[in-house]
Design a protein around this nucleic acid. Structure first.
Length: 231
DNA sequence: AACACGATTCACT
DNA sequence: GTGAATCGTGTTA
């Protein structure tokens, strides 16, 4: 069994099958550079959208419209979709032309939480416990559409003798991922996807994955919060 | 040009 | 838990 989760080869990581990618993205630290500052958080909730056969997927039956072009791109392409004025962040999987992707539905804020509170006008779990909320918190919008996710670049800081983020050499409006500083969930739970009624078997399928007990999972009840949800 | 429909969020009860 | 707000997008005429 290949441990693809620990592979730092971006291409291979994002080309794994969509369900595996949805699970393996849990715990990953994603970052953006906004106004010369870094913002970031751990992914805690995802959903898999399985392309031409999936009635709930924007690539169902291969229907290609201008707004979904990014979904047909290469693995690692960012696909932004607008829903009720809210921006949804997806990461495309599979080979070019196969419209499958993982929707990011929740993050645990880690870097620059203050700025995220300001961007959202809310604090606590309301910063990012939903797909439209986390994009607002991180300043992710249409300018990210069709961009490619990048592995973070670091430089060695002589004084502290540590690797630190090389912010000057990062681009704005690009999604970064930091494999080294990511977490491993203790338990992953699954459920049907949210907001997908009347789609036959595709309504029922358990294609939503989340870190058990994490506060930033959408709809997670207070009684189900766990302090220790990472290994 | 008109219409229907959401991969949602928020403010209620 | 329920309902309203809200508007971009694709379809049809």
């Amino acid at each position: 069994m290949k441990k693809i989760n620990s592979v730092h080869n971006m291409k291979q990581f994002f080309e794994q099958d969509t369900v595996s990618l949805a699970k393996n993205l849990l715990g990953k630290l994603i970052l953006v550079k906004k106004n010369n500052e870094l913002l970031g958080g751990y992914i805690v909730e995802t959903e898999a959208y399985l392309g031409v056969v999936d009635r709930a997927c924007h690539g169902f039956e291969g229907k290609l419209t201008p707004k979904v072009e990014a979904l047909f791109g290469k693995a690692g392409t960012v696909y932004i979709y607008t829903m009720h004025t809210h921006k949804m962040l997806n990461i495309v999987s599979c080979e070019e032309g196969n419209p499958q992707a993982v929707l990011i539905r929740g993050i645990e804020p880690v870097i620059n939480i203050e700025r995220m509170i300001e961007n959202r006008g809310k604090e606590g779990i309301l910063i990012s416990n939903g797909p439209g909320k986390l994009t607002k918190a991180m300043g992710i919008g249409d300018m990210f559409n069709k961009s490619k996710i990048c592995e973070i670049t670091k430089k060695f800081h002589k004084v502290s003798k540590k690797s630190i983020y090389d912010i000057e050499n990062m681009q704005e409006n690009i999604l970064y991922i930091d494999f080294e500083n990511s977490k491993i969930p203790k338990n992953i739970e699954s459920s049907a996807r949210i907001g997908i009624p009347n789609k036959g078997i595709w309504t029922e399928k358990e294609l939503r994955y989340f870190v058990a007990g994490n506060k930033y999972v959408s709809g997670m009840k207070k009684s189900e919060f766990k302090d220790e949800c990472w290994k």
